[in-house]
């Protein structure tokens, strides 16, 4: 049996990892997944490790799955309000069907 849920994806800068994680935790999400990200966007090209060694400004992709769409939107609002103006930041949500999870 599958369960309907909302997936929130935030692609932003590595320096914001702790701050974004704190926002997610403050909205009662039961967890999140963090992935090192690379790519190209309006701020600059960001590699994930190569060829530049000093990877201070790498990107991350954070995925949060929430049971209701509202808490996903609240997290998105809080993150974009504080960081979207000055940092690379893309946020999107999509509906997902969760096949297995202890709890959401």
């Amino acid at each position: 049996m599958t369960q309907q849920a909302t997936r929130l994806v935030i692609v932003t800068e590595k320096v914001l990892t702790k701050a974004v994680a704190a926002i997610i935790e403050s909205y009662d999400a039961s967890g999140y997944t963090l992935i090192a990200a690379g790519g190209m966007g309006s701020h600059n090209t960001r590699s994930s490790g190569e060829p530049s060694v000093l990877d201070h400004f790498g990107n991350i992709k954070i995925e949060v799955i929430t049971a209701d769409p509202d808490s996903a939107k609240k997290i998105a609002d809080a993150v974009s309000e504080r960081y979207a103006a000055d940092y690379a930041c893309i946020i999107y949500i999509d509906p997902v069907e969760v096949l297995y999870s202890h709890r959401l």
Partner: peptide, 20 residues
């Protein structure tokens, strides 16, 4: 190593490509 992330967090509006 340590300066760029500190400045990125402390002066978010400055362009890191310029100083790094």
């Amino acid at each position: 190593i340590s300066g760029p992330p500190t400045l990125r967090a402390g002066i978010p509006r400055a362009n890191p490509s310029a100083y790094v």
